[in-house]
């Protein structure tokens, strides 16, 4: 018993100090940096001003933010639409096969995602596999220009982030109590209606966490835009990286990063508020 308590304490202290050192403190530093200014001697001059946020509000910076949100939104929708049926089938598959399928979802993580992004170029460049197949089948005469386009960035992001959508959806769908569906059928709901009124609300936590896990990295994965988009399509992640590495305007980069965090926080809050209200009504 005594040992049990010690183990518990050790785990809790371990987790809390891990989070404090690697998540909380760095975020506080970024937050503080976003109010500072920069000089030639130091990347960060301590102080307090809102000028970095004011600079973010100019039209070029806003247009980067908006186009990045749009791109990542599109990626999230594509991931959701493709992952949902997959996760539903997965949740209904019998044990040995299901484990194999789950393993197949996870296997890509064994390879570094940057390497997988480079592998993607071998698929879609002018002399790549896709073009060669299409050319030899006579479907096209000249190679399609797929590399270095916004579409290539979307493809790369969907490819990299899809498992992050599948896994939470699978967890939610697997827990779904089938008796609710039977009750819906008994009460005369069509399958379509049962899906929208029963399955979707019950799996909403999985949908939301999947969307969060795809949307936020989708804004930040600058190397996908560098490798597949030709370093032209600016994600907010590219902008932040450039502020830190190229122009060394750390306060502006920090302000952009804080803005993103706040944006995500607000979206989560809205979701919780609306979920609580809906839940309250039903009860």
């Amino acid at each position: 018993m005594k040992n049990d308590g010690f183990f518990k304490l050790a785990v809790i202290v371990g987790v809390i100090s891990w989070m404090a050192i690697f998540a909380f403190v760095p975020n506080i530093l970024v937050f503080l940096a976003s109010f500072s200014s920069t000089s030639t001697q130091n990347f960060i001059e301590p102080g307090f001003s809102l000028s970095n946020y004011a600079r973010l509000m100019d039209t070029t910076h806003l247009s980067i933010l908006l186009s990045s949100l749009r791109l990542s939104g599109l990626v999230t929708v594509i991931c959701l639409v493709t992952a949902y049926p997959f996760a539903a089938i997965l949740a209904r598959t019998r044990k040995p096969l299901r484990n194999t399928l789950l393993l197949l979802v996870v296997i890509p993580f064994w390879t570094n995602s940057l390497v997988r992004t480079y592998a993607m170029t071998a698929m879609i460049n002018s002399s790549g596999i896709v073009n060669n197949v299409l050319l030899s089948l006579g479907i096209i005469d000249t190679p399609l220009a797929m590399m270095y386009t916004p579409g290539a960035v979307v493809l790369g992001l969907v490819y990299t982030l899809l498992p992050f959508m599948i896994l939470p959806l699978y967890a939610a769908l697997e827990r779904l109590d089938r008796r609710y569906l039977e009750a819906a059928r008994d009460l005369g709901a069509s399958p379509w209606r049962a899906f929208w009124k029963v399955v979707v609300p019950l799996t909403m936590p999985g949908i939301v966490s999947g969307c969060m896990l795809v949307f936020l990295p989708g804004i930040g994965m600058f190397y996908v835009s560098d490798v597949l988009g030709g370093a032209k399509a600016m994600l907010l992640g590219n902008f932040i990286r450039d502020q830190f590495l190229t122009t060394r305007d750390w306060p502006l980069g920090a302000a952009a990063s804080v803005t993103l965090t706040v944006l995500m926080g607000v979206m989560l809050l809205l979701y919780w508020k609306s979920a609580a209200r809906l839940g309250g009504k039903e009860a």
Binding site: N125, G128, P143, A145, M147
Partner: peptide, 18 residues
């Protein structure tokens, strides 16, 4: 006019006919 910015391995885009 720019198709791609690359300082890592620009020869690839040239050799791949991009």
């Amino acid at each position: 006019s720019v198709r791609v910015f690359d300082s890592d391995s620009p020869k690839q885009a040239l050799l791949n006919n991009e």
